[in-house]
Structures are given as C-alpha cells and as structure tokens.
C-alpha cells in the first residue's frame, strides 16, 4: 500500500505493508537510523519520535496511521548542527550519553516535555518520562532536561 506523509519537513511516499511499524519504515525505507528498536512493545521508548507534535513510540505504530501526518525524528529536531535544539545543546553540555543507544528516544521525550512543561521540576521529569536506559545515565538526563528548559526559555525570550 502506498502511504504519504512528511518526515522532518520533507514529503515522503512509501509502498509497504500498511501494518509495518513506522519505526522500520523510518529506519530501513527512509534510512533515518537515529530512531532505535528496543523492545517492540512500546515499553522502553527507544523508538520515540513526534507525529503532528505528539510523542509516539513508533515500534507499535502502524505506518498506515501516519498518512498525511508530520513525523519528526531526532535527525529533524535541530535546525542544523550549528543551531542545535535546546535539548541536544543541553545533552552536549552535560555530557549525557554512555552507550548512546537509548538517547535519541530520551531526547525526543525531553523535547516534548519542555514544550508541555516549560518550567519542569525534577519531579515533573521523573514522573513524565518512562524511557529505559541501561547504562545509568538517568542523573545526567534529569540535569540535561532542566538545562534544556533554561536554554529554551532564553530562546523564547530572545524571539
């Protein structure tokens, strides 16, 4: 089945089994590899991306539902490598990743969180992000999200 949607602002058309999880379409058809496979059950959050601005676990989201929608992956989060999204900038500053595999999912969740809660407390972060990290980067993720929220506020104030 042919399905059309946009990814990171670019229109795409794919011809795949409509039940295919969006994750595999993004990774293997569109060659955007930042979004990761972790559990296949929407438990771990490694495959998190945005659809029409909502946070979605793409391993359990059939591509047919993406028809006509706007998908954003980590590759499309920042304007450019020189102008990073506050979340990625904060991740760089706090030196967050270890193995790095779960980090794209965490960053997509973080980007949504600071949009919904511009002034998050540590407790807001703990309660609202349920992604899994095995290396134990949790303390730095919390710090980085607080930092990202600060950077984001500064950006909003500028504009």
């Amino acid at each position: 089945m042919k399905i059309s949607f946009s990814v990171n602002g670019n229109p795409v058309n794919v011809d795949v089994d409509p039940e295919t999880p969006l994750l595999w379409v993004v990774r293997d058809e569109l060659k955007l590899k930042a979004t990761k496979f972790g559990c296949g059950k929407a438990v771990c959050g490694s495959c998190s991306l945005h659809i029409n601005g909502d946070l979605v676990r793409s391993c359990s989201y059939p591509v047919k539902y993406a028809e006509g929608k706007q998908v954003t992956t980590l590759e499309g989060l920042s304007e450019s490598e020189k102008k990073l999204h506050p979340v990625q900038e904060a991740w760089m500053e706090i030196n967050v990743p270890q193995c790095g595999y779960c980090q794209p999912g965490f960053m997509m969740a973080a980007a949504k969180l600071i949009q919904e809660i511009p002034n998050p407390t540590e407790e807001d972060i703990r309660k609202n992000i349920s992604n899994i990290c095995r290396c134990g980067t949790h303390p730095r993720i919390i710090k980085a999200i607080l930092k990202a929220a600060e950077l984001n506020k500064a950006l909003i104030a500028e504009s």
Binding site: K33, A34, T35, K36, F37, L74, Q88, M92, Q103, P104
Partner: peptide, 15 residues
C-alpha cells in the same frame, strides 16, 4: 563520541 551520539548518527551495528 558525544556528538555522534547526540546527533543520532549511524554508529551501531543495527544501523
């Protein structure tokens, strides 16, 4: 390896 990991570059075997 900070930047490739923050930018989500293809660095793992799955990629």
């Amino acid at each position: 390896d900070l930047k490739p990991k923050v930018m989500g570059e293809s660095i793992f075997s799955i990629d």
